[in-house]
Amino acid sequence: MEFFLQLVLSGLVVGSIYALVGLGFVIIYKSSSILNFAQGEFLMLGAYVCVAIFNATKVPFLAAFLLTLVFSALLGVTLERVLLRPMIGEPVISVIMLTLGLASVLKAVVQGIWGTDTQPYPEIFPTTPVRIGPLPVSQGYLYSVGSVLVLLALFSVFFKYSRAGIAMRATAFSQQVALSMGISVKRIFALSWSIAAVVSAVGGVLLGGVRGGVDGAFALFGLKVIPVVILGGLDSVAGAIVGGVIMGVLENLAGGYLDPLLGGGVKEVAPFVALVAILAVRPYGLFGKIKIERV
C-alpha cells in the first residue's frame, strides 16, 4: 500500500509539471492550431536561464526566476514574429517541421552555452520532509504542486475575466469573428506563444528545484506531454491539467508494477501505449471539442 501511495505521489508531482507544459501546448494550439514540438526545449531553456542568471548576478532566487519569466515572454514573442508568422496558411507538415527545427536549434544553443553536464540547482525548497499520513514527503514536491495549482487558478481567472483572456478565447473560437470585433489576431498569436514559453519556463524551474539540477533530458518532456494533451483534448485547458495528472500517475504506476515483469523502460513507453488507445477510442480526448475530421 505504501509503495502504491509513493508511486501515486511522485506521479502527481511529475503530472503537475506535465500539466504546466501541457497548458502551454493547449494555449498555442487553441489560438493558432499549431502543435508546438519545441515546448520541451522551452522548459529546458527556462530552467537553464534561471540558474545562469542566479549564478551570474547573485540576486535572490525569486528575482532570477522573475527575470527568467521576462526572458521567456520575450523569446516567445520573437519566435512567433520571426518564424511562425510566415507559416500561417502553410500545410501541417511544414509547421510541424518548423517547430522540430526550432527545437533542434534551441537544444544546440543550450548545449553550446552550458555543455551537456548537469547544472546543479541551488536549494530553493527547504529539505526537511513533511509527513502526510504514513508518507514522508519532501517539501519541494508540495511547493511544486502548490505553485502549479496557483498558476492554473490564475490562468483560469485570466481566461475568464481579463480583456486579453477573453480576446484569446474569441480568437480560438473563430479568427474571422475576432478580427471583425477589432481584436488583433496577430497580437493574440504573439501573446499565446509568450504565455506558452512562460508556463514552460515555470515548469522547468520547478522541475530543476525538485530534481536538484537541470540537464538535456528536460527536453524530453516536450514529447512526453503529447499523450497528455491528446488525453485531455488538444483544445481544452482543463483537459491539459486533468490529462497531466492522470498521465503522471499512470506512467509511475505502470513503471512501478510492470517494470519487474517486463524488464525496465515501461515508464517511458506507457504514455504512448495509452496514446494509441486514446486515438483509437476517443481521438478528441476527454474534454476536447468533437470536431475531428474523419476520413
Binding site: L98, G101, L102, S104, V105, K107, A108, V109, G112
Partner: peptide, 15 residues
C-alpha cells in the same frame, strides 16, 4: 551542438 544547430537552422530557413 554546432551540427544540431545548423541542421535545425537549415530546416527553418528552407521553410
Amino acid at each position: 551542438s554546432l551540427k544540431m544547430g545548423v541542421f535545425g537552422l537549415a530546416i527553418v530557413l528552407f521553410l
